[in-house]
Design a protein around this nucleic acid. Structure first.
Length: 814
RNA sequence: GCCCGGGUGGCGAAAUCGGCAGACGCAAGGGACUUAAAAUCCCUUAUCCGGCAACGGGUGUGUGGGUUCAAGUCCCACCCCGGGCACCA
């Protein structure tokens, strides 16, 4: 009989073709009696090609999905496609194609690649977020937000490139200049923008990190989110402007230092500053604002300008000069601070630059008041030189001062967040149109629900320059006002595509619903996502926005869960030649190439084997070849054993092989259930195959009949095509992942005897084989009389003997 | 500066609860098979010292201390690498 060889191409294409049109293969049922498991990898960008960096994400999710199927779960593993905003639009323009057509053709190509990889998706639940039906529900959510006061419009500063005459996203600003015009500094421009009130949920977003996500999401992601939300407790205090009596409200976390304040500093764009400043001063303020846009904040020198005004400290009655300063941010706190140069490093720097006095008011608990307390900026202590508060510890002074502010109406204890409302307006073509109409008579009017979706026009000229291209499409822009019926103009802004990705996983559960974004009953069954898997680069934006969206949907009564994902897993990057894989560096290995050279199974297997999934992994071709060799090795063993007629009959060999088998079932099951260290799972399969090669001739038919199917079943999550082919070789039918996961027998997994290490003073001197459960005193006796320890015991006194049953004996001598 | 990770052979890594450091793979070297090569199969491979050898002994998980019969693992201090945040008042 000719020896069958492992031909990955033949095998993978065979099964790929067999399953290509079977939509029911991985179908999950809503309200199944089996326990549910919703596993989801983060969205792919429809760039048209997958590379092996992407594959890792799916390989992890797919292994898990297949394992859960085999464990008897009702697994939802859907697949969909994000519209992916700016880069998609820009790339389409560069290629002279319409973004919609371009994106859809990319999606088709990526879908083909995903299928070719053999991933176990529920293809029926495919969602494409750039389709009108998805726009409809984005717009529906927008209207709901508007009704609830969670959507609003205000003038806000945006990055503006004077050369292109266009708005730039933050990521398009490189070193303060436009990404296309490296010599053109970006300026700040005020535009009317739509916002969603994520700040209304800041407290809950923060609280649930601790209450719901801690321990289930990676610490690193949670700490980034905490940082981003940035809650700080302090006080808001009004300083009264001399002359006009106008109030300047400042925010401070250190109201206890207020007697040390020597000036008030406003953000350059602060309205009070704009009133106080003369023409020259206004020009200086503008300079500061632009400079801030162009440089990273860290590189900016302190810059300030005296406004000419004075304000009164409400506690001391002291008259303080009012300045503007480039380091004071309009969108944090109140846009105004009191400067306490003695106890704040930034204030110190500012005040020394401009010769503003410095006055210390905090002394260490066990020390004296230092007039120049430079070394102890920010320290708490005892308040001095502070009127009635002198002598109080910082914390007490704070409480008392807050109480007085509240009582006398010039301030209060306050909490400030760093997180800002989510600006969803984009002056771009590509994105969901914001469903409102601007009527000269009625103002801003929402588009009635029955008129949704507002669809993007297709006859649009895309240049990537100037204002939104939608403004030039008269058929789109000109509408009748839904209220008065008069001529009106459509809103030309489109939504940030992060809106799409904020709730796509809900739509996955009910992808074809045309009367609602989804059926709430289906969500109640599937949610929360049991396991969400993706790159850490989404730690802030996507993962905060989708948490926010979930809470809003809950408050709209659409869903019951408060968090989208019960567990989050962030996988490491794929590194090649010492660098992250990227087109710029030219070190990309495309999925296509990988499948061609090694096969889909080999690629997946190697990616899971090379490192634990949360760590970065190095892709090396030789490493992939090793994975290929292993698949060949296991395949050869299974196929030639299936052809075998004569078997050995060595009970000892059977026992050794079965022991290894059951030990490995145990290890791999635990790896899946607890740690996802698939590298050790695969190493376990390799160990098992190594033992099988050694014992091959001696094994009985009965032992092989137990070992082979279990081996194939355990390979399935990592290399499904190969597993499927071997399963057929073994004369079995139906997809492998529908088979039950093998169970291990603890009795068979047990070693016959324990090897006990003998140590003298902690150093290994010998080892003895004993039967399991040998009592302590017997082990001690054996250790003390074993030849290996004798030379180290001679002439010494035994002080102590530590015995760990079945493991070691340590003899302590003097 | 602050907040997270991490540091183990030539390389990727393993050691899950404080109990044999280096499983498994890559690379390298040797052997078998072959006219030959590829493929395959088997063996060796942390390091130093002694020995022809089987073997024996020492050292070894970023550095320095500590706890313990026993530390890659726990505690303290420090060094280095990676990531995130950063005039946030």
């Amino acid at each position: 009989m000719p020896e069958r060889i492992y031909d990955h191409k033949e095998i993978e294409l065979k099964w790929h073709d067999r399953w290509k049109n079977d939509a029911t293969l991985y179908k999950a049922e809503v309200n199944s009696t089996r326990p549910k498991y919703y596993v989801l990898e983060m969205l792919p960008y429809p760039s048209g090609s997958l590379h092996i960096g992407h594959i890792r994400n799916y390989a992890i999710g797919d292994a898990l999905a297949r394992y859960k199927w085999m464990q008897g779960f009702n697994v939802l593993h859907p697949m969909g496609w994000d519209a992916f905003g700016l880069p998609a639009e820009n790339a389409a323009i560069q290629r002279g194609r319409h973004p919609h057509e371009w994106t859809l053709s990319n999606i088709e190509e990526m879908k083909r690649q995903h299928r070719r990889m053999g991933f176990s998706y529920d293809w029926d639940l495919e969602v494409t977020t750039c389709e009108p039906e998805y726009y409809r529900w984005n717009q529906w959510f927008f209207l709901k937000m508007l009704e609830r006061g969670l959507a609003y419009r205000k003038k806000a500063l945006v990055n503006w490139c004077p050369e292109c005459g266009t708005v730039l996203a933050n990521e398009q600003v490189i070193d303060g200049c436009c990404w296309r015009h490296e010599a053109t500094p970006v300026v700040q421009r005020a535009l009317e923008q739509w916002f969603w009130k994520i700040t209304a949920y800041a407290d809950e977003l923060l609280k649930d990190i601790t209450e719901k996500l801690e321990g289930h999401w990676p610490d690193r992601v949670l700490s980034m989110q905490r940082n981003w939300i940035g809650r700080s407790e302090g006080s808001e205090i009004d300083f009264t402007l001399e002359g006009t009596g106008e109030k300047i409200r400042v925010f401070t976390t250190r109201v206890d230092t207020i007697y040390g304040a020597t000036c008030v500093i406003l953000a350059p764009e602060h309205p009070v500053a704009q009133k106080l400043l003369d023409e020259a001063g206004k020009a200086r303020a503008k300079q500061m604002i632009d400079a801030r846009a162009q440089k990273g904040p860290g590189d900016l020198e302190k810059d300030g300008h005296f406004t000419g005004g004075y304000a009164i400290n409400p506690y001391s009655g002291e008259r303080l000069p009012v300045w503007i300063g480039n380091f004071v941010l309009m969108d944090y706190g109140t846009g105004a601070i009191m400067a306490v140069p003695a106890h704040d490093e930034r204030d110190f720097e500012f005040c020394t630059t401009y010769g503003i006095p410095i006055r210390a008011v905090i002394r260490p608990v066990d020390g004296a008041l230092d007039e120049h307390p430079k070394a102890a900026f920010g320290d708490y202590g005892i308040v001095e030189k502070s009127g009635e508060y002198s002598g109080l510890p910082s914390a007490d002074a704070r409480t008392k001062m807050n109480q007085r502010a509240e009582r006398e109406g010039f301030g209060k204890a306050a909490i400030t967040f760093r997180i800002k409302d989510w600006g969803i307006s984009r002056q771009r073509y590509w994105g969901t149109p914001i469903p409102v109409v601007h009527c000269p008579k009625c103002g801003v009017v929402p588009v009635p629900e029955k008129d949704l979706p507002v669809v993007l026009p297709t006859d649009v000229k895309l240049t990537g320059k100037g204002r939104s291209p939608l403004l030039d499409v008269e058929s789109f822009m000109n509408v009748k006002c839904p209220v008065c019926g008069e001529d009106a103009r459509r809103e030309s802004d489109t939504m940030d595509t992060f809106v799409d990705s904020s709730w796509y996983f809900y739509r996955y559960c009910d992808a074809h619903n045309s009367s609602a974004p989804f059926d709430s009953a289906k969500i109640a069954y599937w949610f929360p996502i049991d396991q969400y898997i993706g790159g850490v680069e989404h730690a802030i934006l996507h993962l905060i926005y989708s948490r926010f969206f979930t809470k809003v949907m809950r408050d709209l009564g659409l869903i019951q869960n408060s968090e989208p994902a019960a567990r989050l897993f962030t996988q490491g990057m794929v590194i090649k030649d010492g660098a992250k894989m990227s087109k710029n560096k030219g070190n990309v290995v495309s999925a296509e190439d990988m499948i061609d050279r090694f096969g889909a199974d080999t690629g997946r297997l190697f990616e899971l084997f090379a490192a634990p999934p949360e760590k970065d992994m190095d892709w090396t071709d030789s490493g992939a070849e090793g994975a290929y060799r292993f698949l060949s090795r296991i395949f050869r063993f299974v196929t030639r054993t299936a052809d075998r007629a004569v078997f050995g009959n060595d009970a000892e060999a059977d026992r050794r092989a079965l022991r290894k088998l059951h030990q490995m079932i145990k290890r791999i099951t635990e790896d899946f259930d607890q740690r996802w260290h698939f590298n050790t799972s695969i190493a376990g399969l390799m160990e098992l195959v190594n033992v099988l090669y050694i014992e091959e001739e001696k094994l009985s038919r009965a032992a092989l009949e137990q070992i082979l199917p279990a081996l194939v079943l355990m390979l399935e999550p990592f290399a499904p095509y190969t597993a499927e082919e071997m399963w057929e070789t073994l004369g079995r039918a139906a997809p492998v992942f529908r088979q039950p996961w093998p169970k291990f027998d603890p009795e068979l997994a047990k070693e016959d005897s324990a090897e006990v290490v003998l140590q003298v003073n902690g150093k290994v001197r010998g080892r003895i084989l004993v039967s399991f459960g040998t009592p302590k005193d017997e082990l001690e006796r054996a250790a003390l009389t074993d030849p290996s320890t004798q030379s180290f015991l001679a002439g010494k006194q035994v002080v102590k003997v530590v015995v760990v049953p079945d493991k070691l004996v340590n003899i302590v001598v003097k």
